[in-house]
Design a protein around this nucleic acid. Structure first.
Lengths: 249, 249
DNA sequence: TCGAATCCTGCAATTTCCTGCAAGACACCG
DNA sequence: CGGTGTCTTGCAGGAAATTGCAGGATTCGA
């Protein structure tokens, strides 16, 4: 009475794979009472569908780095940092948000406000805001391989039509003399234009980046008004001396 | 005493399906003392009613509840559909990918090819491709509230500079006379321009959308070359007659 | 390096599917 | 009562999918 078609077999195998279970071809052949060739064909189908990775003698689940970032949000970004950033933002109606885990945590914490507009080159941030019912304008461009924001001359062009209240920039490195830096040249360009497209620029970063000098300069410390960080005051004194309002989260 | 009409048979079969029971056509033919052809016709009726998914040798219950998007990927997009789409795509170096769950499943299954370029207005698709090591150009614009793709005149402008090999479009509705449709006006515009920006356009959609007429027309059936779907051939005959290559997944 | 297991390719046999068609059952109407 | 139309059913013929097998290549382990 058990239906034995390629579809049903493959669905059962897929279920096991999604449970993280490796598949032994010979064993499955016995279990489903089909030849090993048939099992092999099933595994080929699953592999073509991206559901499995074939290895000698069977198949294993494809590595799914699905949610590491989502979870890192809750654990690695201190709640106080996000809260401080929110209070600096206030109810500014138009925000320009950078990418990166820290800014993403901020986006996840934004109050659901249908009257607010978020402009961002980071697809993750865009999705987070959309989930919260906030209107989003996504900036296009070439996705930078690491940081995950759109970059390129086209991206910077799109920003010329934007007039935001606050730009929130993450950091690959932040140092008092050098200023805010990024490790990717294209990213640095976009961040720089973002800062220019906003009335006020805020830098939001964890203490790990403070004092580090990144490869490319985005803007100097005279170009942004606020710094939100959880670094101790001793390491932010230089910024305060340069005229930056420092908020400790 | 047992009334044996198509309706009573189908109601009994539906009851078994809702219990999660797979149906074996040959077995049912013996049980109801009818020919396998009649059972096949019953199963076709159930499939049209959305109560079952036909597989070789019988039918299985259709996946029930609407899970969140991430999980629907694994359960509701049949592996065969994705595999068929992959084979149509071949190794075309430049792809233009739409949004939607089905296209997203395709993106998740793309082979990691550093020489390939994917252009998309869908942030989810962009992230999926980036995870797989594929170069991504993200199209910017206002995020449509439902489908999750960037829309607007700016988005369409960005496409003028694109020359892709294949555009893969999802569907809110697909009907032979009406063509490919979308429920959001802005989305329809972007999809239309996407089709124009590619040498060849392929429509990828599950059977649920076939036969449904959406609110806004994207392109007519003479504007796309390939249709990949898991709908039965009976429901795709009209597309084949219109000159569309139909691939069944 | 050798043996064995596994994999790939093509092929033929079987099963299942699709399509069209004609016969029977039944309701309805003149 | 007879004719007509619709619905359903089974059947035939061809198309398509699936499967197991044979032969040769490849890989793994000793």
């Amino acid at each position: 009475m058990d239906l034995n078609s390629p579809d049903t077999r493959q669905m059962q195998l897929q279920a096991r794979l999604s449970r993280g279970q490796p598949l032994n071809a010979a064993h499955i052949a016995l279990e489903f009472e089909v030849s090993p060739d048939t099992v092999r064909r099933d595994l080929i189908a699953l592999e073509r569908a991206g559901q499995a990775r074939r290895v000698r003698g069977g198949a294993v689940p494809v590595a799914r780095p699905a949610a590491p970032l989502e979870e890192r949000l809750e654990t690695e970004v201190p709640p106080g940092l996000v809260a401080a950033a929110l209070s600096v933002i206030g109810d500014a109606p138009t925000l320009l948000l950078d990418g990166g885990t820290t800014v993403l945590a901020l986006a996840e914490a934004l109050p659901p406000d249908p009257g607010r507009l978020v402009v961002t080159p980071a697809p993750r941030v865009a999705l987070a805001c959309q989930r919260r019912g906030i209107e989003v304008v996504l900036l296009g461009g070439t996705l930078s391989p690491r940081g995950g924001i759109a970059t390129g001359p086209g991206t910077e062009d799109q920003l010329t039509g934007i007039a935001a209240d606050i730009a929130v920039l993450g950091a690959c490195g932040l140092e008092a003399e050098f200023g805010l830096g990024a490790d990717d040249l294209a990213e640095a360009g976009v961040k720089r234009v973002m800062a220019q497209a906003a009335v006020r620029t805020m830098v939001l970063t964890g203490e790990g980046k403070v004092g580090r000098r990144a490869r490319h300069r985005v803007i100097g410390c005279d170009q942004f008004a606020d710094l939100v960080t959880d670094a101790p005051e001793a390491r932010t004194a230089a910024f305060a001396a340069a005229g930056v309002r420092v908020h400790h989260g």
